[in-house]
Design a protein around this nucleic acid. Structure first.
Lengths: 342, 342
DNA sequence: AACCCGAATGGTAGCGCTACCAAATTGGCC
DNA sequence: GGCCAATTTGGTAGCGCTACCATTCGGGTT
């Protein structure tokens, strides 16, 4: 006699069940849940009671279909294991954990094509916002972002031409600051060691080069790079190569902290004095940099904060008040430590 | 005169558009896309042509609503920045990148309550599978998993009572193996240093204790733990504490590699000989362990493979052939290195 | 020849929700 | 008292897709 439970659904209560129980229309329940201020105090209470009794949870899929907008943030990063992006992602998660928004995370593996593919997967979901790492999207990706019909935040870097919004810092300035620091302290034959030369690393290199040229000390043989993914062991190897190439090397600015750590270990192993014989500067300032012996000078970047800020900007845009400032530069800090204290 | 484009949808082509173009019924298009073998060669070609011309992409939300099943894997891990889980997650992503499945990642922050909350968010989406880290779910979480109506894989650990399937290894055996190695090499006053004592760390500690007791060398003062999240700097501090407490300490088995690295750096700083005065063993075997100077002995775990295997098992279960072996132990390897080579 | 069976295709009726619009109610104002 | 606007509530009609069942057709079976 009882109306058969929906043939497919697993028997979970629907909005209609709640409406019946509360003695109101389904649409009122829907409103009470999404815009409580548009429903009278009394009905709101009744509805809340019915929701609690039945254990009703709205179906996000039905919601997305009906409203043509999913409560999902699409997030694209080049790597899941690189601590730098992991921190950004953590900032995003933490900022969104109390909101109704879910997160759809994609790993582009540092590939523009993969980024395009993922964007094509994400777009049909009609996400509420998109957060992508970097500013060097392919033309196709850029168009996909522009047509996504939702707020877009490019993170990690700042640049002149945002798709929509940006949060990051200047990697070029970071590279220059690191190099100028080494020059200032008195190093002269300063090498650059860089793995996985993604666009951000390229710009750090450009900053290094600018500083070296300004000092009249640039020499292409001082630069050692590889497209191979960065790792501590790679840092060790690359440093050996660099030293073999230029035995007079007296300092290195590393692409990132993993490489720097590899350099430090190799110096230990080969009994090369740090900072006396070789100065070392890293990039990102992972926790271990200040603990290393000797502690390693590095450029501190605000990864977690970038994630948080990106979400804050996206949420503001969703709420209708797009931030005044569309490009936010969170800067960086040079952390002077023992490895460059000549 | 043209039928107005759906008032809400952004004008993307729907399955009906494709059907009209191909001159077939909508349901046939749906079938051609999902079970091509049930549609004749010819229609399949026509439909594919129409799909390509229109640039049709199925709406995942509508699909999920109609089929009461979303093409989503729910993944719950305790941390996004801990390299160990990042690797598991990477394995999951890589295994799923060619499939139609998306990934819904949740960060439990090592909290059972947060895990419950996330499970309650994930369940209404009717995911195709759930992958959760650990085997110590709260009773509520366990019930949620059992009632999820989809394959469930618990990862990182093995245990006696799987909700459904399991992939991992024995942390207790890992802890015992590490400790037995130190004993075998000749260390006697072996300490245990552990941060963020999550259930897995607890079991590593239990393995340590078992080995020490078997050798008649267990002493509670040798154990130093804290609930504080693990980091290299914390490793350094904890080692100092441990040494202050037990000056005769001659080796430490660390909870994980971050701690071990902190210990190594502190030894350098305090001019304590490794492995002569202090032996060190870590856990997980991050890349940097073999590069460190001296290189650090560690228990190598197969995180990436755990992620891949979990997906493989879930996919098999979805396809209807649940694997014979519901609990898969991927083991671990003791990597003997300089830090324990007395 | 009548019958059955499987393969291929299609129609109908939702899945659970919300946009849109209509209706009812209230209150303020002249 | 009557009118208008604002507020609160509800009905209807989908959103784009697939489950379920019906239909058609060709080729065996008896």
């Amino acid at each position: 006699m009882i109306k058969p439970r929906s043939r497919r659904g697993g028997g979970r209560p629907t909005i209609a069940d709640v409406a019946r129980r509360a003695g109101v229309g389904a649409i009122t329940v829907s409103r009470a849940l999404r815009e409580p201020e548009r429903v009278s105090e009394e009905l709101r209470r009744q509805i809340q009671a019915a929701v609690d009794e039945l254990g009703y949870v709205p179906d996000p899929n039905a919601r997305a279909l009906a409203s043509a907008r999913a409560e999902v943030f699409g997030v694209l990063v080049p790597s899941l294991t690189n601590n730098v992006f992991a921190e950004v992602v953590r900032g995003i998660y933490d900022s969104l954990s109390d909101s109704p928004f879910r997160i759809q995370l994609g790993n582009t593996h540092y590939s523009g094509l993969e980024e395009e593919r993922l964007l094509q997967v994400f777009a049909p979901q009609r996400p509420a916002a998109l957060i992508v790492a970097g500013i060097d999207q392919t033309p196709t990706s850029r168009k996909l972002l522009e047509n996504a019909g939702c707020p877009v935040v490019q993170v990690m870097e700042t640049g002149p031409d945002p798709v929509d919004m940006m949060v990051g810092f200047s990697h070029l300035d970071g590279g220059r600051t690191a190099t100028e620091h080494l020059l200032e302290v008195g190093y002269r034959r300063i090498g650059f060691i860089g793995a996985r030369m993604d666009p951000r690393s390229q710009r750090r290199l450009a900053g290094y080069r600018a500083a070296m040229e300004a000092a009249g000390l640039f020499d292409p043989r001082l630069v050692t790079t590889t497209p191979v993914p960065s790792s501590v062991s790679l840092g060790r190897e690359m440093f050996r190569d660099a030293l073999a190439k230029v035995p007079t090397l007296d300092a290195v600015f590393c692409n990132n902290d993993d490489i720097a750590l590899g350099v430090l270990f190799e110096c230990h192993r080969a009994s090369i004095g740090v900072p006396k014989t070789i100065g070392i500067v890293g990039f990102n300032d992972l926790d271990m940099m200040q603990v290393a012996f000797p502690s390693i000078t590095s450029i501190r970047t605000h990864r977690y904060e970038i994630g948080r800020r990106a979400v804050a900007m996206a949420l503001a845009a969703i709420a209708g008040n797009r931030p005044e400032q569309r490009v936010v530069d969170l800067g960086f800090e040079l952390k002077r430590r023992e490895s460059s204290a000549r």
